[in-house]
Amino acid sequence: MTLWSVIGSGVAGLAVASDLVARGAQVQVFDPGGPPGPHGCSWWAGGMLAPWCEYENAEEPVLRLGQQAIDWWSDKTPVYRRGTIVVANTRDLPDLRRFARRTAGHVEVDRNKIAELEPDMKAFGRGLFFEQEAHVDPRQALQDLCGQLKDKGVEFHQNLAPPQLDNTIDCRGLHARETLHDLRGVKGEMLVIRCPDVVLTRPVRLLHPRMPLYIVPRGDGIYMLGATMIESEDSSRITARSMLELLSAAYAVNPAFGEAEVLEIGVDLRPAFPDNLPRIRRLGRTIYANGLYRHGYLLAPALARGVADLALENKHSEMVDEDRA
């Protein structure tokens, strides 16, 4: 039986390994960074399964393929099916109208309905509710996938994959750019804060022409604030401006966020191709699966299926853009 070697244990690698195993393949995983942690950009993700919202500024496959994600994750990690609320300050209501026009799957909500959904968002008189959307806790999700793979006999190696390996699947994100020359990094900055004074139970997006923000609840008064999108490949530090913008946007959602403790500052680079859509490429003995951009948790399931189709059945899904086996 063929042994498949998945390189990289971010959300792409683990999802790929998971689908291969589910379809009966034998799999091992290599990641010199060890178990999922701050060394991978999946660690810093929002974990929103929000294909309808994302469609505002993404291509059609994100909407269509992203809708498969909620079911895919449901038997692997807790999926919080509480929808998404999108709001804007009064002066930015044109942005809310545009957002409504460009997306589907939402209902308009007024002050009463918003207060009913999220009592701590009384300040907003108008919004959109995307009832079908969901979210996961990314770190929990990575750990759960690892645990399930180990239970099924998958070995994890904390080292580089030997170069002569056959049947490898390269899911290294931006580290694969020496081969994938059209891959670039898009800087993202995020914060994790603790603010028990504010209770939000579902992801909230605040529209703003310059600094759109989302807040994802992690439970126990912990929230993830994200995320900037900058065409820069410097992942060393957050800038003061980004931090100011993230925090002031959160403050605009509820001034009680002003008292929050800042627990973590995350900075990393999202791997992206020029159209910001993921790709599967077979070059020689290696299949590359990459470019999840800001849609790691949303599109990893579709990416994983595409890889398994190619690896096990030699079928070309729409994500395959090059095959030189």
Partner: peptide
């Protein structure tokens, strides 16, 4: 301005 520091925006 934003992409600047240390030539980090080179790819773009």
């Amino acid at each position: 301005r934003r992409e600047g520091a240390g030539g980090a925006g080179q790819t773009f």
